[in-house]
Design a protein around this nucleic acid. Structure first.
Lengths: 227, 227
DNA sequence: GTCTATAGTCGGATAGAC
DNA sequence: GTCTATCCGACTATAGAC
């Protein structure tokens, strides 16, 4: 059932339609008329409830930050607790794997499809909405990932390198949202079904484990990257 | 020097401006007036040379397919030749690493920044331009990558899994273009300088090697993904 | 709070002079 | 081939009735 066709209040219907459409075609790709029509309300109620079209866009970003944050934050705080209670690389690896698989679940789950489409689009179009999403979703996750990587490497790795590796790791997951059409065609899927998700979980987990093995086994590293 | 400010013919100037601006803000994000103005010509010359704004957009996509194709194709044909001359997993690994590092160079090089921005945007917005870019750029690359992965795995892996792994592998590189702002901030860069590129090359190559080790060492795999 | 009607702006396309 | 001027449709925002 479409979230926007329910009997929720108009502002809530507008928000859901906005997340769907802004995520698909961007802020300029959809008109206020279309948004209002699909939310079964009037153009002018956008002005009334959100000030303007841009106000609705920002409200949509904030709503998504709250939704995804609620889903991802538990994984991050759990990882943080584990890190504080132990320096063991094994523990950190487990937390790292759980965060990445957790992100994969958000990315491929139909429930979060509209939200993650929106996030992907804003990442390509950094604006005010991007600030909200980066600060509340991406940054805390990348922070925790790079701390886990530092721990796995035995704190032998520069912060710069840990952060870079976090981005590269998460890229393996994000590609399925940011290049959705390419990824689906390449994998020969029309949509990501249950079997596809299982394969994806297996592949990504295996890659993460392989990379952890490598990081942990690595020498203290000689040609360090500075600044 | 800006490619569009040269004394090239108007249609060429339009094409270059189009690649820049469409890549930054998308088809609907820029007006024909703006495009013409930045190309030092008239709005009506878009109609004359390319039929319409959409025609210009498609011509830009084709031009990019030619440009990037010219850069990437040599890597792909070299890999193909190697694969045909030998079944050795070591040879395939080398080819795989070279293709991914080659893609990274395209993604982070300033010379190709506008082109790869354009590609990234169209991947998020599948349309007619996406068809051109997928067929001429992404598909040949993903094809070769998955054949190399099959070879490295000793042909023990399903086609499905090989193709999925190709997407995941290339995701590590693409993230730096598709989530450019996020990646830069996360890594603490304002732009990807020479040192950043070196670190990135090192990190991605190491990850690819680690994943290859894992694939090669893997059991023939029991819970195979079918369909 | 909700709806209609409209004001004011900007967009893509194109006719027609040169 | 190049440029000017203009048409017409679509858009956001808002005034004002209820």
């Amino acid at each position: 059932m479409n979230r926007s066709s329910s009997h929720a209040p108009p502002d809530s219907r507008l928000l859901n339609v906005a997340i769907d459409l802004f995520g698909q075609v961007g802020l300029d790709g959809v008109s206020t008329r279309e948004l209002a029509s699909l939310a079964n309300t009037q153009m002018s109620s956008i002005g009334y409830h959100f000030g303007s079209k841009v106000g609705l866009h920002l409200a949509a970003a904030q709503h998504i930050a709250d939704t995804i944050g609620a889903r991802v934050r538990p994984l991050l705080v759990a990882a943080r607790e584990l890190r504080k209670s132990s320096d063991d690389a094994e523990v950190a690896r487990l937390a790292l794997r759980q965060i990445l698989i957790g992100m994969l679940n958000v990315i491929v789950t139909e429930e979060f499809a509209a939200d993650s489409r929106f996030v992907a689009r804003e990442q390509a179009n950094p604006g005010a909405a991007f600030e909200i999403l980066f600060r509340e979703v991406m940054e805390p996750m990348l922070d925790e990932l790079s701390r886990l990587i530092a721990c796995i490497s035995g704190n032998q790795m520069s912060t710069q390198e840990c952060r870079t590796r976090s981005v590269v790791l998460i890229g393996q997951v994000l590609v399925f949202r940011m290049a959705h059409a390419t990824a689906l065609r390449a994998a020969g899927w029309s949509s990501i079904d249950e079997g596809g998700v299982r394969l994806l979980r297996h592949v990504i987990d295996e890659h993460v484990v392989a990379i952890c093995d490598r990081i942990e086994a690595a020498e203290p590293a000689q040609p360090k990257y500075i600044k």
